[in-house]
């Protein structure tokens, strides 16, 4: 703000240097009063309820089970182990979801530039269909309508290296990493066995998150590719590049500069959306936290743990994507 000529006759309420300070003081006062009011109430009410902030309950035995954990867990282990198991479950679905959504989203985004009119239109329909239906509705649809309706035993859906049954998703994997022994799913007494088994809850959540986020990523990719001038395609074509080479060597490196920042926000929303896992019965961080609150009544601590964990996940994704962004940006010398 340019310094105004302060003359002696300027009254204080029109003083350009004073007004900002008055406004700030007023805003600061209001914020302070509101925060003090809320915190004061919080402390008073928590003291009255005997729930003043404490973390020692985290060491008490949880007494509930967390289904499908990567870390060994049983009901006699303390609450913090339960929350940790939930966090690991969240990270697992987020990591796989990021990979899946990126692959599917990129494919759909590029399909919208296909020379095939049908494929192009189908890609648009996919995006418009998925984006206008709430994610939670899609998750319950995948879980209750698709995955819980899968048949069991011999009538299960068998794909090469993958069996989809109501009792779980069975994947081919190395049964013995040392000797590189590959083993597919096999039926044994009416029950499927495989080196890698995922629950239908996990499968439904992962499918829902991937299909939903891919629609948004497809839009980001489409925008990125569209931002590369058409002349680039034509020039590459006249130099003898085939379409795939053009995409790979000419267009994508330029498009990535637009795509990566857009991906960042989609990745963060995928991480946040994974908290809807509770709708399809998957024990992620939020679902464990909800059970913990119901058992302990420690609302403030549980909410702090939740907010803190998601904030850290968001920040890590942002930091990684900013690093990637740095790599793909035009190097100016």
């Amino acid at each position: 703000m340019p310094p105004s000529s302060v003359s002696t006759v300027t009254p204080w309420w029109r003083n350009r240097r004073l007004i900002p300070w008055i406004v700030q003081a007023a805003v600061g006062l209001v914020v302070l009063v509101v925060v003090a009011f809320l915190v004061g109430n919080l402390v008073r009410n928590l003291t009255a309820a005997g729930l003043l902030l404490s973390w020692s309950w985290l060491g008490n035995p949880a007494g509930f089970d967390v289904s499908e954990t990567l870390l060994p867990f049983d009901a006699s282990l303390p609450y913090w182990r339960a929350l940790l198991a939930g966090l690991v479950n969240t990270l697992r679905v987020v990591l796989l979801g990021l990979v899946g959504a990126t692959l599917l989203g990129t494919a759909v985004g590029i399909a919208s530039f296909s020379s095939n009119g049908l494929l192009k239109r189908l890609a648009r329909i996919y995006v418009e269909l998925i984006r206008n239906i709430p994610l939670l509705l899609q998750l319950v649809f995948w879980y209750f309508v698709v995955f819980l309706a899968l048949p069991n035993g011999t009538s299960a859906i068998q794909l090469p290296g993958l069996v989809l049954a109501k009792s779980g998703l069975y994947l081919a994997w190395f049964s013995d990493l040392w000797h590189l022994q590959w083993q597919g799913p096999h039926l044994d007494g009416g029950v499927w066995h495989a080196p890698l088994r995922l629950t239908v809850e996990f499968g439904a959540l992962l499918t829902g998150l991937v299909v939903y986020t891919a629609a948004f990523i497809a839009e980001v990719v489409r925008g990125g590719v569209a931002s590369v001038p058409k002349g680039q395609w034509e020039a590459a074509n006249s130099l003898g590049f085939n379409p795939l080479q053009t995409l790979q060597r000419i267009v994508l490196p330029q498009a990535l500069r637009v795509i990566v920042p857009g991906l960042n926000s989609q990745y963060i929303s995928l991480a946040k959306n994974s908290s809807l896992a509770v709708a399809c019965g998957y024990a992620d961080l939020y679902s464990v936290a909800e059970t913990t609150l119901n058992q302990t009544g420690r609302a403030v601590e549980v909410v702090l743990v939740l907010l803190g964990s998601y904030l850290v996940i968001d920040l890590v994704i942002s930091a990684l994507m900013n690093g990637l962004n740095h790599l793909v940006q035009l190097k100016e010398r």
């Binding site: 946040k272 939020y286 609150l293 907010l307 998601y310 904030l311 920040l315």
Partner: peptide
């Protein structure tokens, strides 16, 4: 923007 909506509703 850093928190999932469900945790805020929970709060």
């Amino acid at each position: 923007r850093g928190a999932p909506l469900i945790t805020l509703l929970f709060l």
